[in-house]
């Protein structure tokens, strides 16, 4: 039977090397995500080039907001982790 009780985990007891590794993994993951955010912008351009009806501006703004969000999170991870 699987025990879902995580109550005994004490992260403060973990080795500093563990947190360094965790930080590296998060930063690498966020870098890959940044590339994905760039792909979304490219995809939006590709789609709006195909069909323009009048809502494309809003879609592009959201794609760029997502990119900025990803960039902000990447920088935040660098600074605060």
């Amino acid at each position: 039977m699987i025990d879902f009780n995580f109550g005994n985990i004490d992260f403060s007891e973990l080795d500093p090397a563990f947190w360094l590794t965790a930080k590296a993994i998060v930063i690498i993951g966020l870098f890959v995500y940044l590339v994905f955010a760039g792909v979304i912008i490219r995809q939006t351009k590709h789609m709006t080039d195909t069909l323009e009806i009048g809502f494309e501006g809003v879609i592009k703004v959201f794609a760029w907001l997502h990119m900025l969000f990803a960039l902000g999170t990447f920088v935040a991870a660098f600074v605060i982790l």
Partner: peptide, 25 residues
Amino acid sequence: VEPVVALPTNFQLIVFLIWYMITLA
């Protein structure tokens, strides 16, 4: 939830940011 609360605050913040970023995507 216990494991999330037990995480250091800076990691909690980044986890939430990543979560909302994925939700937005």
